[in-house]
């Protein structure tokens, strides 16, 4: 395994913050990659594949997060997760879902 690290800055766009459904989608997507995914908020860090860990960040709308992936498919992971975070709000709108 190549020791590859990729990072990407993302902003929480959901008006209600990184609540259950976005955290679920994030963890689910992160779980598809080989790479270990870490999400960092200031001095806190979370395992990107753990929904409970992500919720513990209590990331409100507008919070800047740093996504760090380590492993073979690290750059694919940060790319996909970054896109997910950007699309999250519009995705919820399309699905006609109010945040729970």
């Amino acid at each position: 395994m190549r020791n590859c690290v990729s990072t990407r800055k993302v902003t929480v766009l959901n008006p209600q913050g990184l609540h259950a459904r976005p955290a679920y989608q994030f963890a689910k997507l992160a779980g598809r990659f080989q790479a270990a995914v870490e999400v960092i908020k200031e001095d806190q860090q979370a395992n990107g594949k753990s929904i409970l860990d992500l919720l513990m960040l209590a990331a409100e709308a507008g919070t800047e997060l740093l996504v760090v992936a380590r492993g073979e498919d690290a750059s694919e992971a940060t790319e996909a997760l970054g896109q997910l975070m950007e699309q999250m709000v519009s995705l919820e709108k399309i699905q006609g879902l109010e945040p729970e």
Partner: peptide, 18 residues
Amino acid sequence: QYAAIFAAHLQMLQDPHL
């Protein structure tokens, strides 16, 4: 879309940290 919350519950339950 309404089932998504249960998928989230399931994910919490199966959370590796938990």
